[in-house]
Design a protein around this nucleic acid. Structure first.
Lengths: 354, 354
DNA sequence: CATCCGTCTGTAAACGTTTACCGCGTGGAG
DNA sequence: CTCCACGCGGTAAACGTTTACAGACGGATG
């Protein structure tokens, strides 16, 4: 790992100046003979351009950061999956930041923009605090926020619309003839929990159905919580005929309990999840789920950022991604709707010892 | 976004030289008075150190790259989940490369090490070609390969052991009294496919069971392929009492078909998957699966790389991660074994518009 | 009072590029 | 034959740090 060749080494060997070497390597107009000599020297030496020096001079790193709470979370993953190819195609590298759901870490990421190791940032904040807004206003590089940001904040913004999402689900259930639709929600002090609770109430109203507090249960956003909540719900109100769950894990918990109690899905109780993760298609019965368009939001965010990186100044933009209902067996019968991992490789795909 | 302050700005304002500023910022011994002045100036100016310039001089970027075929693949994701925190704790940023299963892209990543935008690389190659070995021998930064690399290659190496994994599964099935155990494999020209096929045959031998070609089916590594293969298998050999599937998706396909045919799982047919992805716990019945330790491999790789980055030269090391059998309902009865996403947040967890 | 030592700080070079500027040589026009 | 224009290529500065080196200063020591 001795020191590699630099343009100086090449210049010496080719008998030209470093300026010429640089020009040749950058494809600037140069005499054929010089080009030949430089190229030959570069090849022989196995020269590779030093990206750091280049970045220092050009003030561009060709790197973009993506910051979210948790790499393991399917929703973020779906975004990442779309963001990555868009950036790659444009010649940008992706730097991943996982903030582990710590707000200070988010602020730290925003702060680190000043270090100029990236040209831009896509961030999915947990919550947008005053500290966020302050840092965003002073940001030293373009930022795209996936989530909601107050009007006037000088960043591009990509939003989901869970209100419409909940409405899609309830309309669907209503159309199937369900009238006693319960909500299994997550904590109300989270942004998604609050939004979904409100949307549920509103959509019921629009459908002419009464809002009944007994039909709403709050737990955490996990499978066991869903199971617990639904068990309680069914004990109290055995007559419910549909469950709207605030995410897919809760819905899986619901399926567990329904199965244990011998309630048929969807005949006796229809179940709808939310987020449309891979788990929804994998479960049995496969789970009808509201997609909030994580993938689309990721893609939109990446495109907005690129635009700003390449195009320069423009007004901050707001993009809202519409939700979509993925109808599967848990509401609409027993048909298997197909997998989702289908992208051409072993779900393992690594080399393998021994 | 005007040009931010540099150490020159600070030096001027504090009335000292840039050398002093640098020393203060790096915590080198300095007179209290100077420290005070510099700190004050830095604070007032909102100074943030330029990471690029720093890297150029120090020849360290504090970035590490992780390259694999596909961000969406659960196995790679499991690695990423472990790699990220290890690097973060050590002060390294993570640059993500997805090669989309194109070998040329892998070579390109190896080549780009010469650009020195990262201090090291963790790579999961699809296949190790001569080109790989050549680039690895000439690599300008430490590399850890997850997969198998010929002895003598000057890189650290982390391996799975699917042979033992298959054996664990077959032992388990055998102990449960199963004797007609079929294999639903992926293509034999893939590394995992070949390894698993051979391991199956060997393990059968050791158990004193005959190897029967009729009991082996080859398809692709997806759910639909699994379903197709198992349908054929059951038509030809209705007497089989266990299915060893080469990954979880295939196993899900198997479950689909068994359910459709009215075969009970596990009473009539026991099913084992491989990779132990989140889908295994989510399916119904939950799926017994062989974990090849993706998470552990990721962690080990990250630790090996850090060691080399911080410690310096040493002999290349080989770490083999033992497989583990996650026993669930598809072989051992109907109990629900609990979810896997349990890490404290909504499986969605984003802000939300409207 | 001269000397020495130690602490602190400033000057300048270096990391590897890109690029503004200038000078040289050639060829064509007058 | 002279002059000019123009195409190339070289010199040097710049990007923002870190750091080797040496100088300045103050206090202690002989």
């Amino acid at each position: 790992m001795a020191d590699g060749p630099t343009i100086n080494t090449i210049a010496e060997r080719a008998g030209v100046s470093i300026a010429s070497v640089s020009r040749v390597l950058n494809g600037l107009p140069t005499r054929q003979e010089t080009v030949r000599k430089v190229m030959a020297a570069a090849d022989e030496l196995g020269y590779v351009r030093n990206a750091v020096a280049r970045s220092l001079k050009s003030r561009r790193t060709h790197q973009v950061a993506f910051a979210m709470a948790d790499v393991g979370n399917p929703a973020y993953l779906a975004m990442l999956r779309e963001i990555q190819p868009v950036l790659k195609a444009a010649g940008y590298r992706l730097v991943l930041h996982s903030t582990d759901a710590v707000v200070e870490d988010e602020i730290a990421v925003l702060h680190s923009l000043g270090e100029r190791y990236v040209d831009g940032l896509i961030m999915v904040p947990l919550r947008v605090t005053d500290a966020h807004l302050q840092m965003l206003a002073a940001a030293r590089a373009p930022v795209v926020i996936i989530g909601s940001v107050p009007e006037g904040t000088p960043v591009d913004n990509v939003r989901a619309d869970s209100r419409t999402g909940v409405r899609l689900a309830l309309d669907h259930l209503h159309a199937l003839g369900r009238r006693r639709i319960a909500l299994v929600n997550g904590p109300l002090d989270t942004v998604p929990g609050a939004a979904r609770g409100a949307a549920y109430r509103e959509a019921l109203g629009d459908l002419g159905l009464p809002y009944d507090e007994d039909l709403v249960r709050i737990g955490d956003f996990y499978r066991a919580d869903g199971a617990r909540a639904v068990a309680g719900l069914l004990a109290a109100r055995p007559d419910i005929d549909a469950l709207m769950c605030a995410n897919d894990l809760i819905a899986l918990g619901a399926l567990d309990v329904l199965r244990a109690l011998g309630r048929r899905v969807p005949q006796d109780v229809a179940v709808v999840g939310m987020d449309d993760t891979d788990l929804a298609a994998a479960s049995w019965p496969s789970l009808t789920s509201v997609s909030l368009g994580s993938a689309e939001r990721g893609k939109a965010a990446a495109e907005l950022l690129l635009e700003r990186l390449q195009g320069g100044e423009r007004e901050p933009r707001l993009v809202t991604v519409p939700p979509r209902l993925a109808v599967r067996a848990s509401t609409a019968g027993p048909a298997y709707a197909g997998g989702k991992y289908a992208d051409g490789k072993d779900a393992d795909g690594q080399e393998d010892g021994a």
